[in-house]
């Protein structure tokens, strides 16, 4: 291939493009004030709803606030990532795509710009949810290392599902249908150990709940924040994140080429 000689500069170029585009996406997100308010308000409302409305009726063997925090954080990651599907789809259906392609912006650079913006949006929501959680009485005895690890787990999940959402955004013909795709992984935390113990679910549901990506991640975060036993959850959680990432990155490469024929 005649392009082989350009591989090193292309890598540098892709990184530069990705960082410029991450700035672009973050700026565009921040201009949509309704969406900004929603992305912070919704997770906070969910936290309060679970703790004060449902929490009283749920017996999880301890304070419900402590039990539910990892789940709410992962749930809000799902909401944040879902936006990625819509923004990718909006770009694909607008003239800006021609501009980016004619400037040699590669698919990975374009999509990682969107993913980076998603991580930034989620970081903001996570900070707000955590602040509210502390304000209503959440305390952890974990050290700095464990807190950092918990943030790392959350970040890994955000990156993995943001890439999945980006692929969904490429698959969807319109931004509206991209929004529909995201329903699936926004719903995942409900059918996991995030809000209620799996043992309280019907038997047929338990198999799914135990073996889907959110459960091992919730268990890992709970272990890091609250000190519950984790078993092999960290390994399974890591495998899920890596697996989702590989499938989404590879899939989005193929989809991008097909969409830009």
């Amino acid at each position: 291939m005649s392009e082989e000689t350009l591989i090193a500069p292309i890598g540098v170029l892709a990184f530069r493009h990705a960082s410029v585009l991450a700035g672009r996406c973050a700026r565009i997100s921040s201009r949509n004030l309704d969406a900004v308010i929603m992305s912070v308000m919704l997770p906070v409302m969910l936290l309060l709803m679970f703790v004060y409305l449902f929490g009283g009726a749920l017996n999880t063997g301890g304070r419900y606030l402590t039990y539910v925090i990892p789940g709410v954080l992962l749930l809000c990651a799902g909401f944040g990532a879902a936006t990625t599907a819509v923004t990718v789809s909006q770009d694909m259906t607008s003239g800006i795509m021609d501009r980016l392609r004619s400037m040699n912006v590669s698919a990975p650079a374009f999509l990682s710009g969107h993913v980076a913006a998603s991580v930034a949006r989620n970081a903001m929501a996570t900070v707000c949810v955590s602040a509210v959680a502390v304000a209503i009485g959440f305390r952890t005895s974990s050290g700095a290392a464990q807190l950092l690890l918990a943030i790392g787990v959350l970040a890994a999940y955000v990156v993995a599902i943001s890439w999945l959402a980006a692929a969904a955004g490429l698959l969807a013909k319109t931004p509206e249908s991209a929004n529909g795709f995201t329903f699936l992984f926004m719903f995942l935390p409900y059918a996991s150990s995030a809000f209620v113990p799996i043992s309280t679910m019907p038997t047929w549901m338990q198999g799914f709940a135990r073996n889907q990506p959110v459960t091992p991640l919730v268990e890992t975060m709970r272990g890091l924040l609250v000190g519950t036993p984790v078993g092999n959850a960290p390994v399974r959680g890591a495998l899920w994140c890596v697996g989702l990432l590989i499938v989404s990155v590879a899939g989005s490469g193929v989809l991008f080429r097909r969409r830009t024929r």
Binding site: L13, R16, H17, V20, L21, G23, R24, R27, I28, R31, N32, S94, G95, I96, M97, D98, R99, L100, M103, V105
Partner: peptide
């Protein structure tokens, strides 16, 4: 169809293109 970002200002659009161009 204008290949510019509507939520950004004219100046921001041009600067972004400049940055992408290196």
């Amino acid at each position: 169809f204008a290949a510019v970002d509507e939520p950004l200002t004219g100046d921001e659009n041009l600067r972004m293109v400049g940055r992408l161009a290196g």
